[in-house]
Design a binder for these strands. Structure first.
Lengths: 343, 343
DNA sequence: CGAGCGCATGTTCACGTGAACATCGGCTGA
DNA sequence: TCAGCCGATGTTCACGTGAACATGCGCTCG
């Protein structure tokens, strides 16, 4: 928190009053024109528009927000921009919000600690936001002793379990099942798993579905190796898996870790997919160019972003809160990193 | 632009007046406490703080902004979140701004056309922003017939040439030279280049420096192959390069395209680095896990983000505009994708 | 032909805040 | 003892906007 010392007067632009004086009408008429109301005579409207143009008038959002009690602004709280999923989600949210005439205020959380989440949430609430999208492992959000103001519309992404807020998310379970079953179907005896961090709901849901799919097929469930979503952690996990014997199929909880696994396999001279198959999750743009191109579970982040904003706007503008979870389906994208097990 | 129909009154939170009444003081005293002024008796302050707590008071940012003419908000205009550089820059900007007590409003530009840039800029100006960071190929910004309001503080990233605004950027030329000279030093006769899109200043500066370095070393300058930053375009470029004979060293204008080049080389059975060397630009987190791990030019996006905000805040709070360019230095990260040319 | 209605436009006011100025009480120093 | 001053607190006001209400004009219809 640094101090702000306003050294010079913050030159304000022209106001409605200025435009009104220039056009020879009342401020209210300018307001009507600015808001596109129809009950203004064409000639008057043109005159006002001309004056706006001439003076370079721009409506003052602060004044409008103060008057209306609405800001047309949505707060987004996000832990990191390092993960592909978060980035794409943010992009989708931003675009969807912009289309609805809302802007986005992004609040970073540098470290995923309760304390920092509380701080960030606090800062978010002091912003002028009509609603909030939280894209953070909700384990942390749950633990954080923050009480969201009761009236504040909220949507949570990458989360579950709590039923008091609407949740929008990719159907993690379906995707993980897709990946696991595909590998089994190729003839692999079982499937190893490189899991995401413990704190992440998406990670645990993917892991759970992987386990479930194996159990249902009556296969052995090997112990999962845990990473932190990063390619580096995937590499480490890959090295560990290579040590164990009999690993023929690996399902990594995201593409970045899958990339690390691929590296480990290459380093140890294991050909992919001839020696081992690898499947990722996310379908990031680059996974097509991995070596070999990665078979992965495609997530539709655009849908997640769009639906989140829809739900949030329904809350904001309609007042209808709809607790519950909306799932976006996934699909398997088969490329060259998967094949039959070595004989 | 959708219509907003406010169906229910936007429940407002408690105001200073409410807190004042609750604490038995005047609204002005509440204001003083809220702003941390010292001329309030300890007992009074405690009473006010208790009342704030009790009522769940949060200062209304719109009212404050209206009163002060300042918003503590910075607009960021960005074309895409698909490029690693943009993402890291955004992250750095967000963190730096948050540290200074500013929030970030993100405005997306879906397609890099003049028209959309104008629209976006317009929308940004209607937001309550104290300043703007533009992270867009400035070819487009230049062409767009938008006149930024004269008083508005602006910083441009990924740009150059125009001297009326401060520009903060990575030292593209230095980085490209680093990469090219390193490859020559390894014994390669010359260096092929996979360039970025024509519209990008960073791309053209990297290309220019690559050319310059070759010329200075008295080497032949092969025709550059142009991509669009994506791994897919890098793959295509790689296929094209593989056709030409005598390609032993490739400098790709970013890591994503380098990844595509690697894929093309693998596909054609050319070993890296034994058969050909590849260098990227960016040092994205994953490049360490490419196969083989990628030698690349490391950009310090944190510095770029931080310096941008510094310059912008100096403009906003100090009123000192400092046109000119600030360059952040790069460094070469040598990994396993480079080696001596095949004999 | 005049009462009344609809439509364009004007006037008033409050949204929540903080700067400027006003007030009030106690304390210092000649 | 009292003028003067300082520090805590209160009062007034304007920031730019849009809702609610007021005005005034022309036209329709009985």
């Amino acid at each position: 928190m640094s101090e702000a010392l306003p050294k010079r007067p913050p030159s304000r632009g022209p106001s409605m009053g200025d435009v009104a004086a220039h056009a020879g009408v009342s401020a209210q008429t300018v307001s009507r024109v600015a808001n596109g109301l129809t009950n203004v005579e064409a000639g008057t409207r043109d005159r006002v528009l001309a004056s706006m143009q001439a003076l370079g008038y721009r409506p003052n959002k602060a004044a409008r927000a103060l008057r209306l009690g609405r800001f047309r602004n949505i707060g987004v709280m996000m832990f990191t921009l390092s993960s592909f999923g978060n980035i794409r989600t943010l992009e989708a949210i931003t675009v969807a919000a912009a289309r609805a005439g809302y802007s986005i205020t992004l609040v970073p959380v540098e470290h995923p600690t309760q304390h920092e989440v509380s701080i960030a949430l606090d800062r978010l609430l002091e912003q002028s936001v009509d609603g909030v999208v939280i894209v953070i492992e909700s384990h942390i959000v749950d633990q954080a002793d923050v009480d969201l103001p009761p009236g504040l519309p909220v949507v949570v992404i990458d989360s579950a379990e709590r039923t008091d807020y609407p949740v929008v998310d990719t159907d993690q379970s379906q995707g993980a099942r897709l990946a696991t079953e595909y590998l089994l179907q190729l003839g692999h005896e079982t499937v190893w798993h490189v899991a995401g961090p413990e704190l992440s709901y998406s990670a645990s849901r993917r892991e759970q579905a992987w386990r479930q799919a194996l159990l249902e097929a009556g296969r052995r469930v090997p112990p999962p190796v845990r990473g932190d979503w990063s390619a580096a952690s995937g590499y480490l996990a890959g090295l560990e898996l290579v040590e164990s014997s009999g690993v023929t199929a690996v399902f990594a909880a995201n593409d970045q870790m899958a990339l690390g696994v691929l590296r480990a396999l290459h380093e140890r001279g294991i050909p992919v997919p001839a020696g081992a198959s690898v499947v990722g999750f996310d379908d990031m743009a680059e996974s097509d160019s991995f070596w070999p191109p990665l078979t992965t579970v495609h997530q539709d982040f655009d849908v997640v972003g769009r639906r989140s904003i829809e739900v949030l706007l329904a809350e904001i503008e309609g007042g209808e809160s709809s607790p519950g979870t909306i799932f976006a389906p996934t699909r398997l994208v088969v490329r060259s990193s998967t094949g039959a097990p070595p004989t």
